[in-house]
């Protein structure tokens, strides 16, 4: 495992990466009692790519994120994260893998009793025992990245829904994880606020080179993220329609009753003739 805080914010992440998949699902099955949640699900996530999981409620999207994190174990199949097989790993070994993962939970899941700054720096202060000055600087840096630097001393209860999600993104990226998992980060947000969260996801994909999985049923956000890219000029970040060479960096995967019903690019999804997918997109 790599050290977590050795790279600088300006590091060329993409130059370090290999083309080895960072996540591999192979024939994964999971059932809760008689209800089969995942049926023979297989996919891979390549470094620096974003995979958008679409599907109706209860299709098994969030379950996949929990399996990747090791919060749930599949009944059958194999799950590899950064080359480590996590579906059979002990909880203590999983902690080492989780150090390279960041998760943005639905509604943010911020710790109620901690300030925004303490939430964001939780891993640095509580687990990694990073020197306070270094930790404070990193917290300020990531809060600046998501545009929440002025809210460092606020309590989560004082934040709006969109602000909570952005703080949750900041918390997830504090140790520069190689993989970020987003569980419905824009659900329940108004379109304008949702756009600010979408922009953070695009920035992390394009500027930080983070591999990510986005679970959502907000089609508007999913297509916006897939069809836009972030470009940095000096301190300024601009968002523009994605260039053809970067269009393949985001793929869609549609789940239908626990099975993979579609896997492909935004363009392929738009052109699909499958009746279920068409109904979902309409």
């Amino acid at each position: 495992m790599e050290p977590l805080l050795t790279q600088t914010a300006e590091r060329p992440v993409r130059a370090n990466r290999t083309d080895e998949p960072v996540i591999v699902f192979r024939n994964v099955w999971l059932a809760f009692d008689d209800h089969v949640v995942l049926r023979n699900v297989s996919f891979t996530l390549l470094p620096g790519r974003l995979k958008v999981f679409l599907g109706a409620s209860g299709a098994g999207k969030s379950t996949i994120l929990r399996i990747i994190l090791g919060l749930l174990r599949p009944d059958d199949g194999e799950v590899y994260v950064l080359g480590h097989r996590v579906d059979q790993m002990s909880e203590s070994d999983l902690m080492a893998v989780r150090a390279h993962l960041g998760m943005v939970f639905q509604e943010g899941a911020l710790f109620d009793s901690l300030t925004v700054g303490e939430n964001v720096g939780y891993r640095l202060y509580e687990e990694l025992r990073v020197p306070p000055d270094e930790a404070d600087a990193r917290v300020a840096e990531v809060l600046g990245f998501v545009g929440m630097a002025d809210y460092i001393d606020r309590m989560p209860a004082e934040l709006s829904g969109g602000q909570r999600r952005r703080v949750a993104i900041a918390r997830a990226m504090i140790t520069r994880p190689r993989i970020l998992l987003y569980d419905e980060p824009t659900t329940g947000l108004d379109p304008i606020t949702a756009l600010t969260v979408d922009d953070e996801i695009i920035k992390l994909r394009d500027l930080e080179g983070v591999s990510s999985i986005l679970v959502t049923h907000q089609l508007r956000d999913a297509f916006y993220i897939a069809e836009h890219e972030a470009v940095q000029t000096g301190d300024r970040v601009r968002f523009r329609p994605v260039s053809p060479e970067r269009a393949g960096n985001t793929e869609f995967l549609m789940l239908k009753e626990g099975e993979v019903a579609f896997e492909g690019t935004a363009d392929e999804l738009r052109r699909t003739s499958d009746p279920y997918l068409r109904a979902f997109l309409s």
């Binding site: 929990r66 994190l69 989780r98 939970f105 509604e107 899941a109 710790f111 109620d112 687990e127």
Partner: peptide, 22 residues
């Protein structure tokens, strides 16, 4: 209980903290 239902316990685990110890 409210930490469990609002995913804060899952968030603790995802941040590398054992909720039993914490």
């Amino acid at each position: 209980g409210s930490m469990v239902v609002t995913d804060q316990v899952a968030a603790l685990r995802s941040l590398g903290t054992d909720p039993i110890r914490k």
